[in-house]
Deep mutational scan, measured.
Amino acid sequence: KELVLVLYDYQEKSPREVTVKKGDILTLLNSTNKDAWKVEVDDRQGFIPAAYLKKL
């Protein structure tokens, strides 16, 4: 599985998104959309803007 590093805090703005903190390391589920990547956070799945993430 692929991991990503969170570069900036992000507060979810819709039910399809998830809230993350800078420095979190998350499982990347889908990065086919260049604008928003799907990740898993504490058994929740949701989207975060790709600009907030860096592949490890």
Rank of each mutant, 00 (worst) to 15 (best):
G23H: 04
N30Y: 06
I48G: 02
N30S: 13
N33A: 09
R44D: 03
L53R: 00
A50K: 08
Q45I: 15
Y52N: 08
K54G: 05
E12C: 14
N33I: 06
V6T: 02
D43M: 09
N33C: 12
A50W: 04
A50M: 07
I25V: 11
D24Q: 15
D35E: 12
V41N: 08
D24M: 15
D9K: 02
D42N: 14
V4S: 00
E40N: 05
G46H: 11
N33G: 10
E2L: 12
L29N: 01
N33E: 10
V41S: 09
L26I: 12
V18S: 02
T32L: 10
L5T: 04
L3F: 14
F47W: 15
D43R: 12
S14E: 09
V6W: 02
Y8V: 11
Q11M: 13
G23D: 04
A51K: 15
V39R: 00
L3Q: 12
I48S: 01
V6I: 03
Y10A: 01
P15H: 10
K13N: 10
S31G: 10
L3S: 06
N33L: 10
E2D: 11
Y10S: 02
L3Y: 15
L56S: 02
I48K: 01
V41A: 09
L28F: 02
K38T: 08
L26M: 03
V6L: 01
K22L: 04
E40F: 07
K55G: 03
L28I: 03
D35P: 02
K34H: 11
L5F: 06
Q45R: 09
I25Q: 03
L3K: 11
P15T: 09
V20P: 01
K1H: 11
K21R: 12
V41G: 06
S14C: 11
E17V: 04
T19E: 03
K34N: 12
L7P: 00
P49H: 05
A51F: 13
T32P: 04
G23F: 04
Q11L: 12
S31V: 05
K55E: 06
Q45A: 12
T19N: 06
Y10Q: 00
N30L: 08
L53E: 03
R44L: 07
Y8R: 14
K1F: 12
K55F: 07
L7Y: 02
L7C: 08
A51G: 12
D9I: 04
D35N: 13
R16I: 13
Y10V: 02
D43P: 03
V18W: 11
V39K: 00
L53T: 02
K55S: 06
A51R: 14
L56P: 03
E12W: 10
K54S: 10
L56M: 09
K55M: 09
T32Q: 12
V4F: 03
A50I: 09
P49I: 06
T19C: 07
N30W: 06
P49G: 03
V18N: 03
Q11A: 12
E12Q: 14
K1V: 13
N30A: 10
G23N: 05
I25H: 02
Q11V: 14
S31W: 10
E40K: 11
D43H: 11
E40L: 13
R44T: 07
K1E: 08
E17P: 09
A50N: 04
E40Q: 15
F47Q: 04
Q11P: 04
L7Q: 02
T32R: 09
K1S: 09
Q11C: 12
L28Q: 01
Q45G: 04
E12F: 12
E12G: 15
Q45Y: 08
V20H: 03
D9A: 06
K22Q: 09
K13G: 08
Y8P: 00
E2V: 14
V20W: 10
A50E: 05
E12P: 13
Y8K: 14
K22G: 05
P15M: 09
E17F: 08
Y10W: 06
A50P: 10
K55D: 05
L26R: 01
F47Y: 14
E2H: 13
I25K: 03
L29H: 03
K13M: 11
